[in-house]
Design a protein around this nucleic acid. Structure first.
Lengths: 107, 107
DNA sequence: CAGTATCCATACCGATACTG
DNA sequence: CAGTATCGGTATGGATACTG
């Protein structure tokens, strides 16, 4: 539909939190509260919801260690790893953009 | 904030329509109704709104030719062109993803 | 041709409180 | 530690009618 495939990637990566979550998973698995600390502005509720959606899309997997207290880790699936270059690409563009924005005062 | 720059790109490219619009502008300037035909599911209202936002973000420029009937064209700004590789990247990923999805029945 | 204006539904998201 | 549940506000998006 609409003659392009761009929307597929955007559906997965888009929204307010998914890109940020995926960015923080780039350097390895993370626990739930670890992600909360890395993304201070996300609420518990939204983090849960977004992680579930990423799981349903097959991008990340949830690994639950049967311990008390609970221990859960989130990490990329093999399929999800195919998205990593895009995340990194956007990260690098964002860095360049902010630098240019504040340096050249481009608006 | 949140320790990453990914969100900047997502703010610009994300949402339901912006990525698709930017994709269709890859191969040159387009007129308003031309974009409507290329994106059959977008409403006039949403196309207008999204084009305005892309304009405000400095990604595309609106060129109005003083004719009757009106003639308007949208195209990438120099700044916007720095986003093109990301759009293309997502497009290629999307193509691969759908092929794999339907071929391997990966789910 | 290229838009505005209005109305309305729902999706998204945050705050807060509670739980195995 | 890693969540759920509930409530409510705001943003997003669609349908339809109208316009310079």
């Amino acid at each position: 539909m609409n003659g392009c495939f761009v929307e597929l990637a955007i559906d997965i990566v888009g929204g307010k939190w998914k890109g940020i979550i995926l960015y923080h998973l780039l350097d390895g698995p993370k626990r739930f509260n670890q992600l909360r600390r890395l993304i201070p502005t996300v609420t518990q509720r939204m983090l849960t919801l977004q992680l579930r959606e990423l799981e349903e899309d097959g991008v990340i997997s949830r690994i639950q260690y049967p311990e008390i207290p609970p221990h859960v880790e989130y990490q990329y699936t093999e399929f999800g790893k195919t998205l990593q270059p895009i995340i990194q690409h956007m990260q690098e563009w964002g860095k360049l953009y902010t630098e240019e924005y504040f340096a050249d005062n481009q608006s």
